[in-house]
Lab assay of single mutants.
Amino acid sequence: TFEVERIVRKKIVHGNTSYLVKWKNYSSKDNTWETEDDIRTKYGDLVDDFEK
């Protein structure tokens, strides 16, 4: 199971928000862009903290 360590960046393309996710126990080269809906479902607190 993958676990988010932190959110690195945010991008908005054509009105759709995605977050660059750093995965726990993986290197930064393994970071992936994930949709806001996918990340918010399980890691809403991390998204809220990133947006502060």
Rank of each mutant, 00 (worst) to 15 (best):
F2T: 11
D45R: 09
I7P: 01
I12L: 07
R40S: 05
I12S: 08
D37Y: 12
Y43K: 02
K29H: 10
E36W: 06
Y19H: 00
L46Y: 05
R40M: 10
K29W: 13
D48G: 05
W33P: 00
K24M: 08
R9I: 06
F2E: 11
D45L: 09
T41F: 12
T32S: 11
K42M: 13
E36I: 07
T1E: 12
D48H: 08
G44F: 11
R6E: 10
E34L: 15
R40N: 06
T1C: 15
S18T: 11
F50Q: 03
D30P: 07
Y26M: 15
D30A: 15
K29F: 09
K24R: 10
E36L: 08
R9M: 13
T32D: 00
F50S: 02
D30Y: 15
R9F: 08
K22W: 03
V8K: 02
K22G: 03
Y43Q: 03
V4A: 14
K24H: 06
L46H: 05
D37S: 12
L20F: 09
Y26A: 14
D30H: 15
Y19M: 04
T35S: 13
Y26I: 14
W33M: 01
K11E: 06
T1F: 12
S18H: 15
K24N: 04
D48L: 10
T41G: 12
F2Y: 13
K10N: 07
F2N: 13
D38L: 13
L20M: 07
N31H: 09
S18P: 04
V13P: 00
D45I: 10
K11H: 06
K22H: 06
K10H: 04
K10Y: 05
K10I: 05
K22V: 08
E5V: 04
N25S: 08
S27Y: 07
D45Y: 12
W23H: 03
N31Y: 15
N31I: 08
R6C: 14
T17H: 04
V21P: 01
E36R: 05
K11V: 07
E5P: 04
G44T: 09
N25W: 09
D38N: 12
I12M: 07
R40K: 10
D38A: 14
R9N: 15
H14A: 13
S27K: 10
V21F: 00
K24S: 05
V13W: 10
N25R: 06
G15W: 02
T1S: 11
R40C: 06
E51A: 04
R40V: 07
R6N: 07
E34T: 05
Y26H: 15
E51Q: 04
K11T: 07
K24T: 05
I12D: 05
R6G: 07
F2S: 11
N16V: 15
I39S: 03
D37P: 08
G44A: 14
